[in-house]
Design a protein around this nucleic acid. Structure first.
Lengths: 240, 240
DNA sequence: CGGAAGATTGAGAGTTCTCAATGCCTGTGG
DNA sequence: CCACAGGCATTGAGAACTCTCAATCTTCCG
C-alpha cells in the first residue's frame, strides 16, 4: 500500500516523481508506540517533527478539573506537530490511541523538503485543511445536539479515511472507546452510549467492536448537515 | 498609531526595517464596510486577500436550520483569508460586525511578500496562532459550562487586544451584541444574558454598552482556567 | 415622541450530566 | 477448556444546565 502521507499530500496536487522520491525520506526513522502513551506533551520542545504512519493518535488538552478534550484525531498521513518549527513549545499534547508507528523527521529535513515549492505548498495545504476541520468541530459542538454531532464526526472520519484508502465502502475501523469518542465530542461517555443506541435503532449507523458501519449514508449526512467541502478533497472523493 | 498587523507580525520576531517597509504596501487599497455585511461568502473565490485594518469582523457558518456559529473574531491586524491562495474556494463566510476598514491585497503581492523568509515565517506563525485559538475554542465549548466559557473568551480577547494595543488596562471595547456573543459561544442569547448577570453579581466582570470591564482579573482567569500560552505572545504581553 | 433593536426576566420543557449498578467481552492463569 | 479479573458498554433515576417562547424594559435614533 502506498504511504498514506503521499496519498494525502497528493490531494494538494502538483507533486512530481522527484517530490515523491524526496518525501519518501520521511520514513527513514519510524518508531513504534504502544496505545495510550504520550507522543508529545504540552510544554515539550521536540527537535523532531512527528508524522503518523500507522495507527491512530489524538491532540488533546487536559483541564484543571481533570477532564479532557480531544481537539483532533490523527490518522496515517497526518503531521502531528509541524508547528514546532515555528513555535518554541507545544501548547497541547498528542497521545497514541492505538499501537502505532510514528515517523521522526529531523527539523533540518523539513527545512530541506520545503525548499521544493510543491512540497511547501502541499504542507501548507495540509495545515489549512486541519484548520478547516477545527472550524467544523466548533460548529459541531456549538450548534448540534448529540445525535447530529456524532453523525457529523462519523461522516467526516469516513470521508477523510476514504481519502487515504482506509475506508472501503461504508464501514471503517474506529479504534476508540466510547469514552474517547465522548472526549472528542464534548459529551459524556454515558450520553454517547445512549445516543449511539438511538442511531442504531434509527437504522443510521452502528458502532460495535471498533467498527463503524454506516447503514444509511444519505440519512446520516442529512441529520448531520454534512457537506465535505471543508475537507477540500479531490473531486469525487468526498462524494458518496 | 502603528498599523495593527505590524504589531501583530512583530510577535513573530525577526522583522527588519525592510520587511516593515514592504509590509506597508498591504495598506495600498483599503476599503470601508458597513456593519453586518458579508466581506466574503462561503463558495466565493476572491482574488484578493483581505486584512482587517479597523473594526471587527467574524468567520461564521450558517447551518441548515438557520442557526449560526461564529468560529473566530477578526480584529485589526488579522488576515481574513490567506487560505484562498491555496484553496479554490472559501469554506466559510466572513462578515463585518462593526463598520470597518479592510485592506484588499492582490494575491500577487502576497506571493511577492512571502519571498522574504521573515515575512513568510511571520505569516505562517499567524496562521498557526489562529489554529491554536481554534483548538482553545473547542476545549472551551466542549468542556466548560456557560460561565467559565464566557470568562475564557473574555480573557482571550483581552490578551489578544492588548497585543495590538487595543486594550489598555483591564477593559476594552467589545462591539458585539449578546446575540453575536452567543453565536460564538454555542449558547443562546438568553442564557448568555443570564450568565453575564451572574458574572457581574460575582464581581468578576461587566459588559455594558459594548464595554468589557474585568473587575477581578485573577478570579476571572481562575474560573476560566485560562493560560495564555496558546496565543504564543511575546513574553510579558499575556501576563497580567 | 415614537420605533426598533437589544437586554432582561419568568416559566416550563428538553437535553445532558452525575452517580451507581449491572452486563458483556477478552485475555490470562489454572 | 473453564473460571476470573478488568475494562468497556449499558441502563436507571434524579439533578443540573441550557433552551424555547413570550412578555417587558431599556436604549438608541430619527
Amino acid at each position: 500500500m502506498e504511504a498514506a502521507f503521499l496519498l494525502k499530500l497528493q490531494s494538494a496536487g502538483r507533486l512530481n516523481d522527484g517530490d515523491r522520491e524526496r518525501l519518501s525520506k520521511l520514513c527513514d526513522d519510524i518508531r513504534p508506540f504502544h496505545a495510550r502513551r504520550d507522543i508529545i506533551r504540552e510544554g515539550d520542545r521536540p527537535d523532531h517533527v512527528h508524522v503518523m504512519i500507522e495507527g491512530w493518535s489524538c491532540r488533546y488538552k487536559m483541564l484543571a478539573d481533570g477532564t479532557r478534550q480531544i481537539t483532533a484525531f490523527l490518522v496515517p498521513g497526518d503531521f502531528c506537530d509541524a508547528q514546532i518549527t515555528i513555535f518554541d513549545e507545544m501548547d497541547h499534547s498528542i497521545g497514541s490511541l492505538t499501537d502505532c508507528q510514528v515517523a521522526f523527521v529531523p527539523r533540518a529535513l523539513i527545512a530541506e523538503l520545503t525548499e521544493q515549492p510543491a512540497i511547501a505548498r502541499a504542507l501548507w495545504w495540509a495545515s489549512l485543511v486541519d484548520e478547516a476541520v477545527l472550524r467544523a468541530w466548533i460548529v459541531n459542538m456549538g450548534r448540534r445536539e448529540a445525535q447530529d454531532r456524532i453523525a457529523h464526526l462519523i461522516c467526516e472520519l469516513h470521508a477523510r479515511l476514504r481519502n487515504v484508502g482506509l475506508a472501503p465502502g461504508n464501514s471503517f475501523e474506529l479504534p476508540l472507546t466510547q469514552e474517547e469518542l465522548s472526549d472528542a465530542l464534548g459529551l459524556t461517555s454515558v450520553h454517547v452510549n445512549r445516543t449511539l443506541k438511538r442511531l442504531r435503532e434509527d437504522g443510521l449507523m452502528t458502532f460495535r467492536r471498533q467498527q463503524i458501519v454506516i447503514t444509511d449514508v444519505p440519512a446520516l449526512r442529512k441529520i448531520a448537515d454534512f457537506d465535505p467541502n471543508y475537507l477540500h478533497l479531490p473531486a469525487g472523493v468526498g462524494e458518496d
